[in-house]
Every structure is written in C-alpha cells, then in structure tokens.
Computed example of a mutant assay.
Amino acid sequence: MFERRAVALLKVCLVGLFGLLVLFQVMSLPGQFASMAREEPEMAYLRWPATFVTVFWVLCVQVVIVCTWRLLTLVQKDRIFSEVSLKWVNGILWAIGAGWAVLVGVLLYVGFNATDPGLPLVLTLMTAIVTVVGLLMVVLRALLRQATTLRSDMEAVI
C-alpha cells in the first residue's frame, strides 16, 4: 500500500520536475546567456555554446526522468524484473554517460582557460558527483539483471 502511494507521489514529482526543466530549456537558460552576452561583451562568444551545453544537460536529465517514469510503471505492473526494465536502465546510463562526457569536455576547456579556480573546482565536483551516480547505476543495473535472471529461473521452476 505504501509503495503504491510512494510511486504515485514520485510520478507527480517527476511531472513537476519535467515541467520546470522545460521552462529552463525554453526561457531561463537562453535568456540568461543572452543577458550575459549583453552585460559582458568580451564573453559574448560563449552565449551559444553555453546555451547549447546547458540545454543538452537539461535534456539528459529529462531522459532520465522519462526512463524513471517507465520503470515506475513497470513497478506498478509488477514487471520490474523483466528484460524491458533493463532497456530503460540502459537509457538512464546513456543519458548520464552523454552528460558526463560533455561535462568533462567543459571542465577541460574551463580548466585550461580559467584565471580563477572557482569554476573549475565546481565543475570538478559536478564531474565527481555524476561519475558516482553513473557508477551506482551500473551496479544497480547488474543487480537488476541478477534479479531478473533469478525471477525467470523461479518462474520456470514453478
């Protein structure tokens, strides 16, 4: 009973988060970098690359949200231990991996061009966090694969 409510509440939260991310993609991020280009003309050349990169990161998070939604639906239908769920977990891993690769590229670019250590340190922290989350997802995928195999074996016996 509690699980059903938690899944429903999580789905509501995911819808809200997805909506907020769409607002960021469409309005906030492009406007923020346009404003930056006006206020700091010497940095204006970064407007479009920064907009593209940040919108891409938001897109990666949106992919994770959609995949999580699909996994929650499988939980509701008691089908989480199936091959289908592995495809959605792989989608999460691909999104995390793509975001991580772009983040490392940004870290390298900023790290070699920065005059202040603040932003490179923040990007290093973000890279470490995304690395840990990605590796955690790899371990969870392995656990899901084992559980799926065990469930298939048990269904074959019964």
Results as ranks from 00 to 15, higher is better:
P30S: 06
L9K: 06
S35V: 06
L86D: 11
E40G: 02
L20A: 15
E83S: 15
L17H: 11
L119A: 07
D116Y: 03
V110C: 06
Q25M: 14
I96A: 15
V15T: 09
Q25D: 13
W100Y: 07
V64H: 08
N90G: 10
L46V: 05
M154Y: 14
G118Y: 09
G105I: 05
D78Q: 12
I92E: 08
L107F: 02
V12Q: 15
V122A: 14
Q146I: 05
L123K: 13
F2T: 10
R145Y: 00
Q76A: 08
R5E: 14
P117H: 05
L150W: 07
Y45D: 09
T149K: 15
V7D: 02
T51S: 00
A156S: 10
V75I: 07
M154K: 11
R38S: 11
W88E: 07
V133C: 13
M1V: 12
I65N: 02
R47Q: 13
V26Y: 15
S152K: 12
W88D: 05
S152W: 08
R47S: 03
G91C: 10
R5I: 13
V22Y: 12
L121F: 12
S28T: 09
W69Q: 11
G105Y: 11
L144D: 04
V130W: 10
C60H: 01
V130P: 03
V58L: 02
G91L: 07
V106Y: 00
D78V: 15
L20T: 13
A8G: 02
V84L: 14
V130K: 04
I129A: 03
R151M: 05
F2E: 13
R145D: 01
L9I: 03
L71K: 09
D153S: 10
R70G: 04
R47E: 08
R145M: 01
L136N: 02
S35H: 08
P117V: 07
F33T: 04
Q76R: 09
V7K: 00
L143Q: 08
V106Q: 00
L9R: 05
V15G: 07
R47T: 02
L123E: 02
L119E: 08
F18Q: 06
V75N: 05
E155H: 10
F56I: 00
R141C: 01
A8L: 06
A8D: 04
F52G: 01
V63T: 08
V104T: 03
V104M: 07
W94V: 13
A34I: 01
V12F: 15
L71T: 01
E42G: 10
A147I: 01
F24E: 08
L72N: 00
V55I: 07
V132T: 08
V89N: 14
V104D: 03
Q32P: 01
P41T: 01
V58F: 02
L59S: 14
T148N: 00
Q32A: 12
V84T: 14
T148D: 03
L46N: 10
P30W: 05
W94T: 09
L21K: 14
V132G: 02
V89G: 04
L86A: 09
E3H: 10
F33Q: 07
V102Y: 04
M154F: 13
P120L: 03
L107P: 00
L121K: 13
V64C: 15
T124M: 13
M137S: 03
T51D: 01
G111N: 02
R145A: 00
V64I: 12
D78W: 11
A156Y: 15
V12L: 14
D116N: 07
